[in-house]
């Protein structure tokens, strides 16, 4: 099962490497990882996506909780939640028909074209993983020059929150 684990941790040098080190030392996999400070600068919020059986996920959350820098964590996938990832994708757009087609697709996916040259478009797209994957599927592989994804972030629905 895929899980999104959201972690509130001390914004200190080395905290991120403790999390990453834990995953490599114990052989857990990380599908994606994103991290940035919160409105309270002493805290960072880290979101990681991992896969494993219930037993493994239980171990992962326990081991993460054991890290001294981890203040609190929440497995977002245990409740209703919203998940978002941002992608920037640069594609070939040299011919009129290519340009037309890509613009149409970007509109369908509610993407924004944020940079234009004679030969390329760069599109910004936000959504859950499936949506970003679907967009990549839709664009011809040969047209893609470069993609960059932010990694998943997420938040609980409703009043529930991961705060101090």
């Amino acid at each position: 099962m895929r899980h999104i684990i959201s972690i509130l941790m001390e914004n200190e040098a080395g905290a991120l490497s403790r999390v990453a080190g834990l995953f490599s030392a114990r052989g857990y996999n990380i599908e994606s990882l994103s991290v940035a400070p919160t409105e309270d600068e002493s805290l960072s919020r880290l979101t990681l996506v991992t896969r494993g059986s219930e037993e493994i996920i239980e171990q992962i959350t326990k081991q993460l909780n054991k890290l001294v820098d981890v203040v609190k964590l929440l497995d977002l996938t245990e409740g209703p939640h919203i998940e978002r990832e941002m992608m920037l994708i640069k594609v070939k757009a040299g011919t009129a028909s290519q340009r037309e087609e890509i613009k149409r697709l970007a509109d369908i996916f509610r993407g924004n074209i944020i940079d234009v040259t004679d030969t390329t478009f760069t599109i910004e797209l936000t959504g859950d993983v499936q949506k970003l994957d679907a967009f990549i599927e839709t664009i011809k592989q040969t047209d893609i020059i470069e993609t960059v994804r932010s990694g998943v972030t997420g938040i609980s629905r409703g009043a529930k929150a991961l705060t101090l």
């Binding site: 037993e55 239980e58 171990q59 326990k62 081991q63 909780n65 054991k66």
Partner: peptide
């Protein structure tokens, strides 16, 4: 004392 020790190897 360590929650992570519990159900690590044996349920």
């Amino acid at each position: 004392i360590d929650p992570a020790s519990i159900s690590k190897n044996v349920k």
